[in-house]
Amino acid sequence: MIESILFYIFAGILLAAAIGVITARNPVHSALLLVLAFFNSAVLWMLLEAEFLALVLILVYVGAVMVLFLFVVMMLDINVAGMRRGFARYLPLALIVVAAIIVQLALVFTSDQFGAQMLADLERYPADYNNTAELGRLLYTVYVYPFEIAAVILLVAIIAAISLTLRRREGTRHQNVGRQVQARAKDRVRLVDLPRRQGEGDK
């Protein structure tokens, strides 16, 4: 009972936020509403007792990805009026894409594998059931090869992204921390004993 009330509250906020993402005029507001949408979907996952996925969604998407996103959106000076100019021209194409998405979703929801009837028999586990340990066990036993392949693909992507942005400019001055730490006073400073000239202090 309470769970369904909570579900409708959070699902309602989620939908409102998602609509806000595409209707907000200010791109920063859109990004923040997207954060709200992520947060609410995490709560929905929590209601499904998928606490690992819910927390990882917040950790990865809300805590890292959206922060970078927000960063970029805040830095860019986006011309909102200019972006809205082509609205009528792109409308037919957009409608086709939307229609395709709706058809796909309808196919998914009415199929035998993912249909609404699959949701009815959600198993409830006792309080000491450990979702995280269970996921870990599956990932590292049954699905170990797909998991490792996905990890390698991600690693390749990371290295590719870094090598794309890595450029060495001539003439920039870098500090070598190792050398700075190794510097000793006697390499830098020379203390000289100047001999007193004859007769100078006599006057």
Binding site: L32, I58, V62, V67
Partner: peptide, 25 residues
């Protein structure tokens, strides 16, 4: 007394950054 407490803590500390970003902007 939750099982994924460490993850919860990481998630909570990771969203403190929003207060800072939004304040600055």
């Amino acid at each position: 007394d939750v099982n994924a407490a460490v993850l919860y803590l990481l998630a909570m500390t990771s969203i403190t950054v929003y207060g800072v970003i939004i304040a600055g902007w």
